[in-house]
Design a protein around this nucleic acid. Structure first.
Lengths: 336, 336
DNA sequence: TTGTAAGCGTTATCAC
DNA sequence: GTGATAACGCTTACAA
């Protein structure tokens, strides 16, 4: 069997290609009997309108790109689950790109997407400190962006985040209220927006609590759990903190490991609180006090914003949606 | 500024569109000076060859679809991380589709993909017991599939799995060797291939150990942690097992929760072993004995197979790659 | 209700 | 080295 296309299908039935299109697109100006004949043969021959030809003709793709650092982080995978669900309902398709936190990758992905392949982009950035010209170029192409979680303040685009500053502030105070005096902040490289904001919440809380912050209390971690293990171990040995606030759950998990090895008891010797979206937090030993982000909702809100823009090019949309995180207290910060 | 395209760019420089293509595709039959002029203006005008036009012309998309039940499962997100990495190296793009374990969704996704949108498909199925004609149709379109983890035996396509049967057998024996006599298997609906295979490993191990299996020891769970909570609680109360073997880590996590509430001590009253790819297993209370799957490798192997097929349409590729899982013993199955 | 024909933006083929 | 031209498969005016 030769490759089927609209012309062959049309010829087979003695109709024109235009009529085949009418059948497939659900237009009303077509005899219902003709339509049935067309769809029946199409099914038999396994004909489907070629996606690329349709797109070329229509100049839109019903596809969006999602750019994130990585997938195997429960926060991002939840966000994408939420986002995909909405996209699916709206008939959109999702291309996934991972930056692995490399600026160069982000740059090349975004540049690539200038080719009109997607109608819009949802992203969580990894290059806060870099120049963002490559993103502004998208505007001239009418490819809208929506940011979530790791945003760029200097790019004019809608954003969805949680109340990171406030949450960090509260987390730090939470530790202090439970008696901690030496509170370490384990965060990510300061060029991530969230790294910075969370650190600021932490520092401001210390200030308000009249705890003089020390340089060695603020620790930059990486994406590599093994490296983090060394970093955290070194920090705990050097600083001997009684409280640890971590910007990501992996850092908390790794801190648990370090404490296990150093025979430091949580929460008696050291209290830990962490940002986390994972259900396992409550199953750790001891259960981990978390600031839980509404990851699914963040994803679907970001998608919602993008679709609003795409479906309503002129109307303005909300500029910055802030979803609240929740502090869930568990045993890792229990006062004894 | 009007929308830029190859014709306008060519006109601007007094060259033909063909020459512009030569510049962009790195062909050698072009004056290097001309090439530079073209690329320079292209950059200035932010011109990129239209993706859909190229694809229509070339009849290939350098895009693959990945169909999975969900993303927020560490196994799948790791697999996709591995897969994306390889795809990226090979210049392929990834479309993500979630079935949420609904056969209808899988069906409609696969049918949709008949439109030539992707060059190939990598999938983990959710409809073992259904008819798989929709997948066979892809063959006539020359769209290859590679399965991973949740495979369909009756579809002729390369597969990547772990040694599920053997691992389940060993896990069950592991429990028995540590004194368990009433071993419950918490699995997923039997129409998943892995659900079935893992159950068979469990049942055969019981047989070999001369432990008569009882119907109520084999429990079907769902994708909903709350529902599972009720199911597991009911089972533990009814059966009062001394060993639990779970087919997925969420089931183990949930079992921990149930034990917490019922004041059942792990591993003294009940030992637990589970399939899991998550790094948190070792941080649970107590640390969970796992059968750890090489999730990243599974993803990249599946991608590798697909690319081999795509780049070498005629040559046969390996039919079934089996990667070994590892039993990592921790405290949840300690003999006391 | 249907058919005709133009055109979406590329790229491959051929001619020069 | 370069240009003209046809085709990829579809959709949409417009005509009938």
């Amino acid at each position: 069997m030769d490759k089927i296309n609209i012309k062959k299908l049309a010829k087979e039935l003695n109709v024109s290609p235009a009529t085949v299109t009418r059948a497939f697109r659900g237009y009303t100006d077509i005899n219902s009997e003709t339509k049935e004949r067309i769809l029946a043969l199409a099914k038999k021959l396994n004909y489907h309108p070629n996606y690329y030809a349709s797109n070329l003709r229509e100049m839109k793709s019903k596809t969006i790109a999602v750019i994130i650092p990585q997938l195997s982080d429960i926060f991002f995978s939840l966000a994408i689950d939420g986002l995909e669900k909405l996209a699916n309902q709206k008939g959109y398709h999702i291309l996934i790109y991972r930056t692995e936190n490399h600026y160069e990758k982000e740059l090349s992905i975004v540049n690539y997407l200038q080719n009109g392949r997607v109608d819009g982009i949802i992203m969580s950035g990894c290059a806060e400190t870099h120049d963002h010209d490559y993103l502004n170029k998208l505007e001239s192409r009418n490819i809208p962006i929506v940011f979530f979680d790791r945003i760029y303040e200097d790019v004019k685009a809608p954003k969805v985040t949680t109340n990171d500053y406030e949450s960090s502030f509260n987390a730090t105070r939470h530790l202090a209220e439970r008696g901690c005096k030496k509170i370490v902040y384990l965060g990510y490289k300061k060029n991530y927006s969230i790294g910075k904001v969370r650190m600021e919440g932490y520092l401001d809380a210390l200030k308000e609590l009249s705890i003089p912050a020390r340089k060695e209390w603020v620790v930059d971690c990486t994406d590599d759990n093994n490296k983090n293990y060394s970093i955290i171990k070194k920090t705990i040995k050097a600083v001997n903190p009684d409280g640890v606030f971590t910007a990501g759950e992996n850092l908390a998990f790794t801190s648990y490991k370090v404490c296990q090895e150093l025979q430091i008891s949580i929460p008696d010797d050291l209290k830990i609180i962490s940002f986390s979206s994972s259900e396992v937090a409550s199953l750790l030993n001891p259960p981990l006090t978390t600031i839980t982000q509404p990851a699914l909702e963040i994803g679907s809100k970001a998608a919602m914003l993008l679709f609003e823009i795409l479906e309503n090019k002129d109307l303005p949309v909300e500029d910055h949606i802030i979803l609240k995180s929740t502090l869930v207290q568990r045993e890792s910060t229990a006062a004894r």
